[in-house]
């Protein structure tokens, strides 16, 4: 992985440090099992990580759904994590 890509991935990882323990645990499990992330995956994940903690938790725990077709796959992966 080139340095730029690595740095981008690491930044994403850091943005998974959240204010809610619920999300910390989901993301910890996600990274353990994530396997390869495509560049598109990284963009989608970055968008999700820009959400407020409570909104993101509602989404990941299935209390709300996303309208964004691109995000659905990633949300599903987080739910399975």
């Amino acid at each position: 992985m080139d340095e730029q890509r690595r740095a981008r991935r690491e930044r994403l990882r850091w943005h998974c440090r959240r204010a809610l323990l619920e999300l910390d645990i989901v993301f910890e499990r996600f990274w353990r099992s994530a396997g390869e992330l495509s560049e598109d995956d990284e963009v989608v994940l970055a968008d999700l990580l820009a959400m407020e903690d409570h909104e993101l938790w509602y989404l990941v725990s299935g209390q709300t759904e996303t309208d964004d077709p691109r995000a659905k796959g990633m949300v599903e992966r987080l739910r399975q994590a």
Partner: peptide, 12 residues
């Protein structure tokens, strides 16, 4: 701050 201010643990 290590994280964006409104992501501090006070949010919980």
């Amino acid at each position: 701050t290590k994280v964006f201010p409104t992501r501090s643990h006070t949010v919980a």
